[in-house]
Nucleic acid binder design. Structure first.
Length: 199
DNA sequence: CTACCGATTGACT
DNA sequence: GTCAATCGGTAGA
C-alpha cells in the first residue's frame, strides 16, 4: 500500500477536498540513508489568487513557481529559515496547494530522530517544518512529481470517515484568519496544536 | 546592494 | 501562556 502513489487525478481537485482526502494517507521518503514514512494527520488548504493567505495571492514569483505548476507536484518553500512541504492541487496556473502540517511516524523513526536531533516520538514530525527535517525535504525537492513513486511520494490508504475530521482556522496567519481550512484527525495525538476541547 | 518579513520552532515564565 | 532566533525570499533604492 505504501508503494502505490496517489494519481494525478487525486490532486487535480479543489484544495479543501484534497486536504480532507489526504488525512490518513502515507507520506513516504526514500534516500540513500533509508526509508521514512508517516501517516498524515493534519493538513491546510491554500487556495488560488483570491486567498490573501496564499503565496499565490500576488501571482507567481521565483519562490512560488511550482505552486502554479501542474497538480501532484511538491511545492517546498522556506519560512523562518525552515522548510515546509505542500502538494499542488488543481490545474496549472491556479496556484492552490495543501500544506502537510503533521504526521504520525510509522517507519524509519531512528532515522527521523537522527535528522531531528531529538528522540521523543512526539517531537519528530508534529509540525510542518519538523516533518520536513525528519524526512530530509528541502528546496532540492521543490517541484518534485509526487506521482512518480520514488524519492518522495504520498501513498493511498482507506478514506477517513468525515466524522473523524475536525475543521479549524489555519495556523499562524495574519490575514484570512477566520477561514476554516485546517483539517485534523480528531483522535490523533500527533497534531501540531491541541484541539480545543468540545464545549 | 540593503531592509524587512514570515503558512515556525524551541526555550522560557 | 510569551518571546526571539534564524535566513531565504522579496521589494525597493
Amino acid at each position: 500500500m505504501r508503494d502505490e502513489p496517489l494519481s494525478r487525478a487525486f490532486y487535480n481537485r479543489d484544495p479543501a477536498t484534497v486536504a480532507r482526502a489526504l488525512l490518513g494517507k502515507w507520506l513516504v521518503r526514500r534516500t540513500r540513508d533509508g526509508l521514512t514514512a508517516g501517516r498524515i494527520v493534519e493538513t491546510e488548504a491554500y487556495f488560488g489568487r483570491g486567498d490573501p493567505a496564499s503565496h499565490s495571492h500576488s501571482g507567481p514569483t521565483s519562490r512560488s513557481a511550482s505552486m502554479f505548476g501542474p497538480p501532484g507536484h511538491a511545492y517546498i518553500y522556506s519560512i523562518h529559515a525552515m522548510w515546509c512541504l505542500n502538494a499542488v492541487t488543481q490545474p496549472a496556473g491556479i496556484g492552490s496547494a495543501v500544506l502537510i502540517r503533521s504526521l504520525e511516524p510509522e517507519a524509519g523513526e531512528s532515522l527521523m530522530a537522527r535528522r531531528r536531533g531529538r528522540s521523543e516520538r512526539l517531537a519528530l514530525t508534529t509540525g510542518p517544518s519538523k516533518l520536513c527535517q525528519a524526512f530530509h525535504c528541502d528546496r532540492g525537492l521543490d517541484g518534485w512529481d509526487l506521482t512518480r513513486g520514488s524519492r518522495l511520494w504520498i501513498a493511498g490508504a482507506p478514506t477517513v470517515a468525515r466524522g473523524d475530521i475536525v475543521t479549524t482556522p489555519r495556523i499562524g496567519l495574519s490575514v484570512a484568519c477566520e477561514r476554516q481550512a485546517r483539517f485534523c484527525l480528531r483522535t490523533s495525538v500527533f497534531l501540531s496544536r491541541k484541539l480545543k476541547a468540545a464545549p
